[in-house]
Simulated scan of single mutants.
Amino acid sequence: MKRKINLLPFLIIAVLFFLINSYVLSGIHSLSSNPFITPVFWISIAVITGSLFYAIQRMRNKEMDTFFKIATHAFLILIAAELVFTLILLPNDLYRLAADVPRNIYWVEFAWFVFFLTIGAFIYGMIFGKYAYRVIRHTLYFDDLPENFDGFTITQISDVHAGSFQNAKAVQKGIDLIKKQHSDLFVFTGDLVNNKAEEIKPWIGHFSQIKSTYGQFSVLGNHDYGDYVKWESEAAKRTNLEQLKKYHDEIGFRLLLDEHVEINKNGQKIILAGVENWGIGFGERGDLKKALTNVAGSDFKILLSHDPTHWEAEVTKFPSKIHLTLAGHTHGMQFGIEAFGIKWSPVKYRYAHWAGVTGNDGLYLNINRGFGFLGFSGRIGIWPEITVIELKRTPK
């Protein structure tokens, strides 16, 4: 017996889509009465929407191809620009209706200016923004940091998503920026690939250039397990994961799988632990207790855990203090505003804290905004990040 499909949500979306486009069209008519505008507008909308549905249909049981990417990005840019246009013009129109005055043409022109500005921002983000690497620095103070680690530096990147890369020269610029930091320790906090181990193979030569005095360490992210593609068998899926682990080794990353290592410096140590992916809604594989087996409660601990939801759910409640947790996963949604004192991204409605450092009293979480990109082939306002954290003893 076939399951009955509820068409109501699709109908509501279709009606809203029609109303938004009709409203945008009214904005065009405010500036021009050319009779060809209406048919050209609706034909354009039909072509973009039709391409999206066709791309989705032909994508079933296949991986994303160029046509799918073009169709989805064209639709995304259209919707984003139309929503911005509507948000700007609608308040003025509501006032106009209440006050019974004609539509303000200058306001319509401003709405169109922002419409095209939005399209320009998306194009910039797709061409340049996704490789616009930034170094973000944090200095964190701890009362119980071993003296010999005062001033110790850690470079962190996360969410490489190698299957999305296309520009080797641009990626190399990011690698060079990592190398320029000359940090004591390098860590990678998961999602090396989108789905399959083979995606990292062309980039091994790039990431293997990363070296640090006290080593390079990594953990797995939710995408690394191959959960989001169809496999011919469970055995093939397991083989893919084992191959990815080998690629970590080829790159020179020591992959921490619910385990820890000691970082020793001049007779003193800190603990670096790493867990398999643990995230609310993204698989709770990691075993924190196992990762910290035989670690003394008084030891200074740094944890690599891909998903930041792990921090509040388990890390802050762990019997012994985990001083610093390094995570990624959110990407800052690759879209938002971080300027003029504003820090906003739609991802805040899923994660209360989605980028940078949070915490206090020597218990901190840092969320890296990601080195790569996924889904939307670009970044707008939330640039790819290389984090450098300096550990300092609290001044007496």
Rank of each mutant, 00 (worst) to 15 (best):
I280G: 10
A291K: 06
E312F: 13
I271R: 02
N277M: 13
E314W: 10
K321H: 15
Q334K: 09
P319R: 13
E276R: 15
V295M: 03
G286Q: 04
N294D: 14
D299M: 01
H323F: 12
K289A: 15
G279R: 08
G281I: 09
S298W: 06
I270V: 13
P319M: 12
G332E: 08
D307G: 09
I302C: 05
I270P: 05
I280R: 11
H306G: 09
G332Y: 04
M333I: 05
V295D: 01
V295L: 03
F335M: 14
G336E: 11
A291W: 05
E276T: 13
K317T: 09
K289M: 14
G341F: 07
G283P: 00
P308V: 02
G281S: 05
F335C: 04
R285K: 15
E284H: 10
G328Q: 14
T325Q: 15
H331L: 05
P308H: 03
P308N: 06
S305I: 10
N266Y: 10
I271G: 04
T309Q: 09
H329S: 01
Q268P: 00
T316W: 00
L272K: 05
D287N: 15
L288E: 09
A327L: 13
G332V: 13
F335T: 07
T325G: 09
E276G: 04
S298G: 08
T316K: 06
G336L: 11
T325Y: 07
E284F: 06
A339Y: 12
I302H: 01
G267P: 00
H323T: 13
K269H: 12
G283F: 03
W278N: 03
W278H: 04
F318I: 06
P308F: 02
P308K: 03
T316I: 15
I302Y: 02
G283H: 01
A296E: 11
E312T: 15
T309C: 11
H323N: 15
K269A: 12
I342W: 08
K269L: 09
T330D: 00
T316Y: 00
Q334R: 03
G267C: 00
E284C: 12
G283S: 02
L324M: 07
D307E: 08
E338G: 06
L292A: 05
H310E: 12
A313Q: 12
I322W: 10
G267H: 00
L326M: 11
G297N: 13
F340P: 03
S298M: 07
L304V: 02
K290I: 02
L288W: 10
F340E: 11
W278R: 03
F340W: 09
A313L: 11
H323Y: 10
G267V: 00
F335D: 01
E338A: 15
E284W: 05
E276F: 07
F300E: 07
L272M: 09
K269R: 12
I337T: 14
H329K: 03
H323C: 14
D287Y: 07
T330F: 01
T325L: 06
G283N: 01
D299T: 00
T325V: 10
I270Q: 03
T309H: 08
M333S: 13
P308S: 04
K321W: 12
L272F: 09
E276Q: 14
H331S: 07
E312M: 13
K321E: 14
K301R: 12
D299V: 00
R285I: 14
G283A: 01
V295H: 02
V315H: 03
L272T: 11
Q268Y: 01
M333W: 10
L292H: 03
F300W: 07
G297F: 10
G341M: 06
V315N: 00
I342G: 10
W278M: 06
